[in-house]
Structures are given as structure tokens and as C-alpha cells.
């Protein structure tokens, strides 16, 4: 399974990963639109990102969520009716949305954030 793995002890909470993610998918630098979220209120920082556990896939009423051959949970926006039940069941609060948008969003383990991380605190791995 392809997954973005986090190493909080290495994280310096620079938030570069959030910028890289939201810039790629939403064309803006906005943590509310990043699939990975760094909370720096604790030591080490809390790094929240999808672990591809697939709980949301079973809850989706339209089969808009599916698992790719690499084990990554993917959202098919054309099937999604924006009910957010996937967010309701997500055990790690890693399915995300911006209220007012039509669809939720999540990490698809693309790895763009890893290139921006100065401390190797995130890595794409194949478990």
C-alpha cells in the first residue's frame, strides 16, 4: 500500500508541506485546503494525513471512493454528491473539506509535499 508516512520527531512545523499541497490542488497557499495538516501546539507537532485505511470507502453511498491498485483511496468527483459521510467516519480526521465546496478532499500519496520538506519528516512508502 502506497502511503504518506509521517515522522513527527523530525518535523519542525515549517508548514511547507501544507503550502505545497494546497498550491498543487487548489492553486492557493491555504492550510484549510491542504490534505496534510501540521499542528504545532505540541512537541513533537501533530501531523495529520490519510493513512489509506479505507474506512471511508465502505461508507460512501455512491461508490465515489475506491482503492487504486497501489492501495490509495481515490475520490471520483463526478460520482461524489458531497454528503461528507466519509468525513464523519474517518477515524483520523484526515478526510477534509472546505464548507461550501462540493466535494471533500484527501491525500492521494502523490508525494509533492515530500519534496518541500526540509527535514525528511514525510516520505512516500509502500507498506
Amino acid at each position: 500500500m502506497k502511503v504518506l508516512k509521517t515522522y513527527p520527531e523530525k518535523c519542525i512545523a515549517c508548514h511547507s508541506c501544507e503550502s505545497a499541497c494546497s498550491n498543487l490542488y487548489f492553486k492557493e497557499d491555504n492550510v484549510d485546503k491542504s490534505c496534510i495538516v501540521i499542528s504545532d501546539g505540541s512537541t513533537p507537532p501533530n501531523m495529520n494525513v490519510c493513512n489509506q485505511c479505507q474506512t471511508c470507502v465502505a461508507a460512501c453511498p455512491t461508490l465515489a471512493l475506491s482503492v487504486s491498485p497501489q492501495g490509495v483511496v481515490m475520490l471520483n468527483k463526478s460520482l461524489c454528491i458531497g454528503c461528507l459521510m466519509c468525513i464523519g467516519v474517518c477515524p483520523t480526521d484526515s478526510m477534509r473539506t472546505v464548507f461550501g465546496a462540493k466535494n471533500p478532499f484527501k491525500c492521494i500519496a502523490c508525494g509533492v509535499c515530500t519534496k518541500s520538506c526540509p527535514t525528511d519528516a514525510i516520505k512516500i512508502v509502500n507498506d
Binding site: 461528507l84 468525513i87 464523519g88 473539506t97 464548507f99 461550501g100 462540493k102
Partner: peptide, 22 residues
């Protein structure tokens, strides 16, 4: 789609629904 019912305030509707989902 999520807005086919054309609500005047989609964010509040979604927020309230998500609260109940959880």
C-alpha cells in the same frame, strides 16, 4: 450534486450535517 437543492447557506447546512454524521 450537494447543491442541487440550491440552499441559501450551503456551509451551514454541511456543517450541521457533518456534526450529526460524527
Amino acid at each position: 450534486k450537494v447543491d442541487t437543492n440550491n440552499p441559501v447557506d450551503l456551509p451551514t447546512l454541511q456543517q450541521t450535517g457533518l456534526k450529526l454524521h460524527k
